[in-house]
Simulated scan of single mutants.
Amino acid sequence: MLFSRRSSDNETVVAMLASAIRRDISFGVLCPDEKLKIEALRQRYGGSNHSMRETLRMLVAEGMVEATNQRGFRVTSATEDDLADILMMRLEVEKLALERAIAHGGVDWEAQIVAAHHQMMRAENQLNQAPDDATALGWDEACRGYIMALVSACGSPRLIEMTGRFYDQSRRFRLARLREGRIDFDARRDRQEALKAAVMERDTKRALRLLEEDTQADLSG
């Protein structure tokens, strides 16, 4: 039990560190290609050498951080080519997952989508009323929750995991567009309502088209 408790405590610390560093990468506090030194990160975020290394390995697996010659770490680059590649992967994975979810999802799945959509719209209203880093992050998390709800009935844990991973990798591009005032919330709201309706009607072709349009508009429209 003692070893189990220590393992559980370490996992909690790593999860908290990963959340903080992931957030700062997403907001550009930690810049693309910036070197990540263990001691400097510990002074900034806390944790031990071991927990920080575990955190960085987790973020490497997510694609947020890169290992450099197995001797150090840096923030993953964020070029236009990176964005194009991430967008391509997001669309391939999300469309496959959504297609399967529409085919297999039941009433509980539909209820989950309605609830996640409501939460996303509420977060969007809070962001528009009081735009700051906290409401921006809350909105982005709610948008992620909606995507994850859409694909949750796909029947493949790996597809669901990949959906979350590529969403996370695209997050900093999306938040950058938000900071620059390049997201049209009225148009986005219309697309999301149409996407929800298409999913509920099990109109797969229309749902996939709307998902693609919305993802492209959020990241590169």
Rank of each mutant, 00 (worst) to 15 (best):
M1S: 15
E11M: 12
E11K: 15
V13Y: 03
M16G: 12
L17G: 08
S19A: 14
V29N: 01
L30F: 07
K35H: 11
L36H: 08
E39V: 03
R42F: 04
R53F: 11
R53K: 15
T55C: 13
L56K: 04
V60I: 00
E62T: 00
M64R: 03
E66N: 11
A67H: 14
T68P: 06
T68F: 09
G72M: 04
A78N: 14
E80L: 10
M88D: 00
V93M: 02
V93Q: 08
L96I: 02
A97P: 00
E99G: 04
A111T: 06
V114G: 08
V114E: 02
A116F: 06
H117I: 03
H118E: 12
R122S: 03
A123V: 08
E124P: 10
Q126W: 08
L127C: 04
A136S: 01
L137A: 14
G138L: 09
W139C: 06
D140A: 02
G145R: 01
M148R: 05
A149E: 04
S152C: 13
L159K: 00
T163I: 02
S170W: 05
R171E: 05
R174W: 09
A176Y: 04
L178N: 02
R179T: 11
G181S: 09
R182D: 01
R182W: 06
D184R: 10
R189D: 01
R191P: 11
R191F: 05
A197W: 13
V199W: 00
V199M: 03
M200K: 15
M200G: 14
E201N: 10
E201W: 10
A207F: 09
L208S: 05
R209N: 15
L211K: 04
E213D: 15
Q216G: 14
G221F: 09
